[in-house]
Simulated assay, not measured.
Amino acid sequence: MTLLSELTRTAVAERAPDAVAVVPVGACEQHGPHLPLGTDLMVAEHVAVATAARLAGEIDVVVAPSVAVGYSPHHVPIGATLTAGVGTLLAQLRDTCAGLAAAGFRRIFLLNGHGGNAELVVVAAREAGQALRVRVGAGSYWVMAWTELVAAGAQDRGRLPGHAGAFETSLALALRPDLVVDPPHRPGTAFARNPAGYFGRYHVEEPDAMAAGDGFSDDPSAGTADDGRRYLVAVVTAVAAGLRKFARA
């Protein structure tokens, strides 16, 4: 059993000191006209649970309840978006870490699935680790798995990670094809990304960029379920390696 919400308090007390608690962090925001609002959270939760299963018998990973609403003000003008403010999200992440520490967990990892949260989960981990005197890590799954995703061809069809483009559409088709509705076609998008991470060497905020693109970054119709399954294998492999290192350091 890997879900914190399914454990008794006795089981938590027994397992927490030697386990890694993983907190999936997502968003509830528009993902173009074709993907569900919870795409980021859906992927983060899947990766967390699949990674826990991959590490079973080696490292005890307990998946905590998710933080479902992230920092998404750049999507609000398009519609169908919930967002937390910077302070609100940081407070929720800190409080979640505090509760896990109080329950006995000494190692906590914030597994992020949404670009808008990328810097904030790191800040939250730093603050929580110092305040709680426990080991707290944070990472966005596509950054943790960048090399593996590039090797799996994730930059060949669309931006990595992009937003609601070929990459995320592939993931959604692999996980919940029933929730994907007629991905639109947008050819000719440039795909290159800096392998150093999501924002590359610096970040420039373009307030209207997402709305100008109808809420998606590149060609969603280029996504396939087969691609998505391959990407998920790459992500789980990389995240498992990251958590293995985190747990043993």
Rank of each mutant, 00 (worst) to 15 (best):
L3Q: 01
L3K: 06
L7R: 12
A11N: 08
A13D: 15
A13P: 10
E14W: 09
R15A: 09
A19N: 04
A21Y: 08
V22Y: 13
V25N: 06
C28A: 07
H31P: 02
G32S: 10
H34K: 10
P36K: 10
L41M: 06
V43R: 13
A44L: 09
A44N: 09
A48H: 08
A52C: 02
R54G: 03
I59W: 12
D60N: 09
V61H: 03
V62M: 05
V62E: 03
A64V: 14
Y71V: 05
Y71K: 13
S72T: 15
T81Q: 05
L82H: 14
T83S: 06
V86L: 13
R94T: 05
T96H: 04
A102G: 02
L110D: 02
N112L: 03
A118S: 14
A118Q: 12
V121F: 06
R133W: 01
V134L: 06
V134H: 08
G137C: 05
A138P: 03
A138R: 11
G139Y: 02
Y141C: 04
W146K: 03
G153D: 05
P161V: 15
G162A: 07
H163R: 10
H163P: 00
T169I: 04
S170M: 08
A172P: 00
D178E: 15
L179F: 08
V180P: 00
A192D: 04
N194P: 03
Y202A: 13
V204C: 09
E206C: 10
P207Y: 11
A222T: 04
L243A: 00
